[in-house]
């Protein structure tokens, strides 16, 4: 690989990995957003912090695979908590999501603060999982993240038909004998996995944006899933790479917020200029419709006065 002047190899590998993670997040987030699970993934994302810290406490290691394994376990536990609340109480889903999010994040904060108060050696850097920090990623970590992202995309590609069907018409899918609940769990678990893979880049607090904003943006541009999914991936890729580059350029700026801001920029632009669903297109369509109506009314009025009724004579 020829190397651009001044950019170290490690930075390039990390950038490539972040691009892969952004793409995968957009792809998998598409199904989550279509299935209305955007905020469920947020609860899982906030829970990952406790998992990261608990993994460090349990093993004494702070290599990325260990910490992310803990994060994934915590995300799955959070989703399990949602299922338990739904099954055993009459608390409604929105409150259940907020409970899991708030309490699990509080636990993560308490664990993190407890560790730093005790000055446990090697704990430094865990707080980077709050808002994201790619500068410390090694090439090996980055490669592993990229591989995980690729695996997630592969799984979705293999289950594309099922995921699409369940996302759009769960009732029909159930009626025709698909294991809807199972596919739904698989989808939500995949969302949780994606949130975990995005964690080093975007942080627990904002990683949801990585799986939510690109699909919502892509949805503005197209009505077709086959177009929406890769487009969401592309937007996620642009946001992730753009965000990492920006935060690298500004000292002490965490990566997560910059990724979100790049994604939000693409979203805002799309919101106005997208064909058909964009604000300008809608305005133009409304004006055109009004004009066409006025034209027809005028023609009708003129016709009554001058031209004979074609059906008449």
């Amino acid at each position: 690989m020829s190397q651009p002047a001044g950019i170290p190899y490690n930075t390039l590998v990390v950038a490539a990995a972040v691009a892969a993670v952004g793409f995968a997040a957009g792809v998998i987030g598409s199904f989550g957003v279509l299935r209305r699970r955007a905020l469920v993934s947020d609860a899982a994302a906030h829970a990952t912090l406790a998992g990261v810290v608990a993994a460090f406490l349990a093993t004494g290691r702070r290599d990325l695979p260990t910490l992310l394994a803990g994060a994934f376990a915590a995300a799955v536990l959070a989703l399990g908590g949602l299922v338990v609340i739904r099954r055993f109480t009459r608390t409604r889903d929105d409150a259940a999501t907020a409970i899991v999010l708030g309490v699990s994040f509080g636990l993560g904060i308490a664990l993190l603060a407890g560790i730093s108060a005790r000055g446990i050696p090697g704990a430094g850097g865990l707080e980077h999982f709050l808002l994201g920090h790619t500068a410390a990623l090694t090439a090996g970590d980055a490669t592993a993240l990229a591989a995980a992202a690729a695996l997630a995309v592969l799984i979705v590609w293999l289950g594309l038909k099922e995921a699409t069907l369940v996302a759009f018409d769960p009732a029909f899918a159930a009626a025709t004998g698909w294991p809807v609940a199972l596919i739904d769990y698989a989808l939500v678990t995949l969302m949780a996995a994606m949130v975990v893979v995005g964690l080093p880049a975007a942080g627990a607090v904002l990683v949801t944006a990585l799986v939510v904003i690109p699909p919502v943006t892509a949805r503005l541009w197209t009505e077709r899933v086959a177009t929406m999914v890769p487009l969401a991936g592309a937007i996620g890729l642009v946001a992730a790479v753009g965000g990492v580059a920006t935060s690298n350029a500004v000292p002490r700026l965490p990566t997560g917020p910059t990724i979100v801001l790049v994604a939000a920029g693409v979203f805002s632009l799309s919101f106005f200029v997208a064909p058909r669903r964009g604000w300008f297109a809608r305005r133009r369509a409304a004006v055109d419709a009004a004009r066409a109506l006025a034209e027809r009314l005028r023609a009708a009025a003129a016709g009554e006065q001058t031209a004979p009724d074609p059906r008449g004579a």
Binding site: A38, L39, I213, A264, F267
Partner: peptide
């Protein structure tokens, strides 16, 4: 829900 996710993260 998606709109909420977009707005508050941003």
């Amino acid at each position: 829900d998606a709109g909420t996710g977009v707005v508050f993260t941003t």
